[in-house]
C-alpha cells in the first residue's frame, strides 16, 4: 500500500468559448497509492468530472500532467463507470459487460470467464440476454460496474455512478460495489457529492472547491474494512466527520457565493 499508482501534477483545465474562459480545475496535485479507494467530494460544477474525464483520456489537460503506473502488458490502464445511461442500448446485458474485453480482443477463454464471473457477481446472469430497455435503473448500473471490473483495468474511475438511483437501490449497490472491490482491491477514483457515500467507500476523501476546482483538504477515513452502511452510520467518529465535511463544504459554497456577488 505504499506504491504510487496515480500521480497528478499541477493539472489545470481551462474551457475556452467565444472569448470567455472558465477554469474548470486549477493546479490539482494528487498522489494516489496502489489499491487505494479515493473519493473526490465537492459541490456540483466544481470540476470533479473534468478531472476524471482527463484521467479517462476523454479530455486533455491545458497544463500539467498525470501519470498512471502501467501494469502487465496488454492490460488496460483505466476503465470508467459512467453516470446513468452508461450502458449501450443496442447490446444485450452480456455484450455490454464483455464490451471492453471484446474491444481489446481478449482471448475467447478470458472473455467468457470474466464475463460470466462478473455477470454472476452482480446477479445478472439470468438477465444476460435482455436489452437495457428491459431492465431497471439499478440493474443498468450493475451492468456498468460489471463491465468495468470485467475489463480488468489498472485503475477504476467512477463518475457519480449512483447519483440517479433511489435511496434503497443506492445503498444496496454501494455495498455490492464494496464487495466486488474487496476481491481485487483495485485503485479507485470515485466522484460524488454525497458525504455519506464518500465516508462509506473511501480510504481518503479529497474535498474540492468550486470554480475553479481546487483541492482544499484531504481526509483519511480509517474505518476497518469490510464496511457496511450500518457500521458507518452507527460510528460516532463518522458522525463528527460528516458534520466537519458538511461545514467545510458550506463554507466554500458560501465563499463562492460572496465572491460572485
Amino acid at each position: 500500500m505504499t506504491e504510487s499508482k496515480i500521480k497528478v501534477d499541477h493539472l489545470t483545465k481551462v474551457f475556452f468559448k467565444k472569448n470567455s474562459s472558465v477554469t474548470a480545475i486549477r493546479d490539482i496535485c494528487l498522489d494516489i497509492k496502489e489499491g487505494e479507494f479515493v473519493c473526490l467530494l465537492g459541490p456540483s460544477g466544481c470540476g470533479k468530472t473534468t478531472l476524471l474525464r482527463i484521467l479517462a483520456e476523454l479530455e486533455t489537460p491545458s497544463t500539467g500532467s498525470y501519470h498512471i503506473t502501467p501494469g502487465k502488458a496488454g492490460k488496460p490502464l483505466q476503465s470508467m463507470i459512467f453516470q446513468e445511461q452508461g450502458v449501450i442500448p443496442w447490446m444485450t446485458v452480456q455484450n455490454n459487460v464483455s464490451f471492453g474485453l471484446r474491444m481489446r480482443h481478449a482471448s475467447k477463454k478470458e472473455l467468457n470467464e470474466r464475463t460470466e464471473y462478473y455477470l454472476n457477481k452482480v446477479g445478472l446472469w439470468e438477465f444476460r440476454h435482455l436489452y437495457p430497455s428491459e431492465i431497471s435503473g439499478g440493474m443498468k448500473q450493475r451492468v456498468s460496474i460489471a463491465r468495468a471490473f470485467a475489463n480488468d483495468p489498472e485503475i477504476l474511475l467512477m463518475d457519480e455512478p449512483f447519483a440517479a438511483l433511489d435511496e434503497q437501490n443506492k445503498f444496496i449497490l454501494q455495498e455490492e460495489l464494496l464487495n466486488i472491490w474487496e476481491e481485487t482491491h483495485k485503485t479507485v477514483v470515485f466522484i460524488t457529492h454525497s458525504i455519506d457515500e464518500a465516508l462509506l467507500l473511501s480510504d481518503r476523501i479529497f474535498l474540492m472547491s468550486a470554480q475553479p476546482g481546487t483541492i482544499l483538504r484531504e481526509k483519511k477515513i480509517d474505518l476497518p474494512r469490510p464496511r457496511s452502511i450500518e457500521l458507518v452510520r452507527s460510528n460516532p467518529q463518522m458522525g463528527k466527520e460528516f458534520v466537519d465535511i458538511w461545514q467545510h463544504l458550506q463554507e466554500t459554497v458560501q465563499q463562492h457565493r460572496d465572491k460572485a456577488l
Binding site: 452508461g86 449501450i88 443496442w90 464490451f99 471492453g100 474491444m103 481489446r104 475489463n151
Partner: peptide, 25 residues
C-alpha cells in the same frame, strides 16, 4: 448520444469496431 461515443473511446474501440458496434447500430 455522446455518452456512447465516450464509452467506446474509454473502452478502447478502434475505428472499425466503432463503425460496426456504435455508429451502425
Amino acid at each position: 448520444d455522446h455518452i456512447y461515443v465516450d464509452i467506446a473511446k474509454n473502452y478502447g474501440a478502434k475505428s472499425k469496431d466503432y463503425f460496426f458496434k456504435i455508429a451502425l447500430p
